[in-house]
Amino acid sequence: MARLLYSAAMSLDGFIAGPDQDMSWLTDYAAEPNPTADRLLSRVGAVLAGNATFGGGDPNEDTEAEGAFGGRYDGPMFVLTHRPPSEPVPGVTFVGDLRTAVAEAATAAGEDYVNVLGADVARQCIEAGLLDEVLVMVVPVLLGGGTRLFDRPGGPPVALERLAGEDAHWYRVTY
């Protein structure tokens, strides 16, 4: 059965995107070897992204490395949105309901991960009790503003348990 994993590269001060969804800050770091990302990529069976993430900036835009995991991911992608494009996008399924999007992505992923991309979709998954794990790859930069890894002002804390054997910031969500 597929597990839902929220993975993100995050600045040391807690941002996954700069102001206005700017991802250019990641360009210098995306080219560096990342064994954790490589290990994860081999275990991703489907991607579930929010519309802002899907249509947002890519640090590798207009290069051969454009797309998820530096353009190396080529599996099924599901985008949670109430505003799908008028024209189909090859390899992408647009879904208007969170539970339906998660179910379809999980079916596509099989025994592998559904990799959740985007802070808002991850927040929705946590609030619905659907998210299983969180992986954060900390990048040595301070952005000072932008989109936070997790932002739910006034919400209750979400307990995480470090996964055994992981040297990265990889946690199980404990509801």
Rank of each mutant, 00 (worst) to 15 (best):
M77P: 00
R83E: 14
V92Q: 10
R148M: 09
S24L: 09
P59F: 04
G55N: 15
G129E: 13
Y113F: 14
L131W: 04
T27S: 15
V79Y: 07
A109Y: 02
V158T: 15
D97E: 15
V79R: 08
R162T: 09
V89D: 14
M10Q: 10
E166Q: 14
L26F: 06
Y171R: 07
G67L: 05
Y29V: 03
A8D: 03
R152D: 15
Y29H: 14
L143D: 11
D112S: 11
R148T: 10
G55F: 00
V116M: 04
T107S: 11
A109M: 03
E87L: 06
G146R: 11
F69S: 08
G50C: 08
V173I: 13
P76V: 01
F94A: 10
A8Q: 01
E111M: 01
V47N: 01
T27K: 14
S11D: 10
P85N: 12
L12W: 04
V95G: 05
E133T: 02
V114T: 07
A31I: 13
E166I: 01
A46T: 04
V95D: 10
V95S: 05
D62E: 12
P19I: 06
D112V: 00
G129H: 12
Y29P: 02
S7R: 01
T174C: 13
A2N: 12
T93R: 15
E166A: 12
T63V: 05
P156F: 00
G14Y: 09
Y29Q: 08
D132C: 03
Y73M: 09
A65T: 07
V47M: 03
H169Y: 14
P33C: 06
G56T: 10
R152E: 13
F78L: 10
V138E: 15
A122C: 07
S86L: 13
Y113T: 02
C125N: 07
E61W: 05
E127H: 12
V173C: 07
P59V: 07
L26Q: 07
G165A: 12
R39H: 14
R99K: 15
N60Q: 12
A164P: 08
A37I: 02
Y171M: 09
D97P: 02
A109N: 07
R148W: 03
G154S: 09
G67A: 04
P157I: 05
E32G: 00
T81F: 03
V141Q: 12
Y73R: 09
L80W: 03
A2I: 02
G155M: 08
T147E: 13
M23G: 06
T53R: 01
V173T: 10
A105L: 08
N51P: 00
A37P: 00
Q124C: 02
G67H: 06
P33M: 08
P59A: 08
V138M: 12
E87I: 00
G18C: 11
A103K: 12
E161L: 10
L135N: 06
D22W: 02
D38H: 05
L4R: 03
A159G: 11
P140Q: 13
T27H: 13
D22Q: 07
N115F: 01
V139I: 15
L163G: 01
G67D: 10
A9T: 11
P33N: 10
E127M: 07
F54E: 06
T100K: 14
T63A: 04
T100F: 02
A122I: 03
Y29G: 02
D132Q: 08
A68P: 00
R83D: 14
S86Q: 15
T53K: 02
G71M: 09
G144Y: 12
M137A: 07
P90F: 04
A49P: 01
G154T: 11
T63E: 11
L135Q: 13
